[in-house]
Amino acid sequence: MRTFSLLKGQPVYDQNDGSKIGEICDLCLTNNGMVKGLLVKKGVLFKQTFFLAIDKVASFGWDGIMINGLNQMEKIKTDPEYTFAHQHSINGKMLISTSGESLGLLQDVYFLEEKGTIVGYEITDGFFTDISEGKQVINPEIPPTIGEDAIIVDVK
């Protein structure tokens, strides 16, 4: 399990020849809170963004991601349903419980790399609250509903 903030910026390597392909720049998410894949920036001067399905990743390391060749990545044909930080971003969205209680603003996600399942949402109530009370993590038991204005989670 890791957070997106730890994954962002990590290099992607081709394990067949050891070449660096690009860097992770975002997560692609479905509207029920599953990680569908990763967005990888590739190139030196003219960077292009490619989609890498979560099941095409050979291994997730602490210092890089390994894949089996460039053919594992594909050009983005349509915009993803949701991303963490780019188009249709969920970063900074309000988390609301199914009982209507405001929980805070989304700051990071915890997910299982192998399955692509988000298991926790790190929220913030502001800088001073984070310092005085620490970060809060919401662990819903069922997948959330990601909407245009908020993320609805079932918390007990």
Rank of each mutant, 00 (worst) to 15 (best):
S5L: 05
L7W: 05
K8H: 11
G9V: 03
G9S: 10
V12A: 13
V12E: 12
Y13D: 08
D14I: 00
D14V: 00
D14L: 01
D17Q: 11
G18A: 02
G18H: 07
G22R: 06
E23C: 06
I24H: 12
I24G: 14
D26P: 10
C28A: 15
L29M: 03
N32K: 07
M34L: 13
G37C: 05
L39Q: 10
V40R: 11
K41N: 15
K42N: 14
G43V: 07
L45G: 13
F46E: 09
K47D: 02
T49G: 05
F51P: 11
A53S: 13
A53I: 05
F60A: 04
G61W: 04
G61F: 03
G61T: 02
W62A: 11
I65E: 14
I67Q: 06
M73D: 09
E74D: 08
E74Y: 01
I76W: 01
I76G: 07
T78W: 06
D79F: 09
P80F: 01
E81G: 06
Y82G: 01
F84M: 11
F84E: 05
H86I: 03
Q87N: 09
Q87R: 10
S89M: 14
N91Y: 12
G92I: 02
I96L: 06
S99Q: 13
S102Q: 11
L105W: 14
Q107G: 08
D108T: 00
Y110D: 10
F111Y: 09
L112E: 11
L112G: 04
E113K: 00
E113D: 01
E113Q: 01
E114M: 08
E114A: 12
K115N: 08
T117R: 14
I118Q: 02
I118S: 04
G120P: 05
G120N: 01
Y121V: 01
I123G: 07
I123D: 09
F128V: 12
F128E: 08
T129R: 14
D130T: 15
D130E: 13
I131E: 06
E133G: 06
E133Y: 11
G134C: 05
G134H: 08
Q136F: 09
I138Y: 14
E141S: 09
I142L: 08
T145I: 08
E148W: 08
D149C: 12
A150R: 14
I151A: 01
V153C: 08
D154V: 00
V155G: 04
K156N: 03
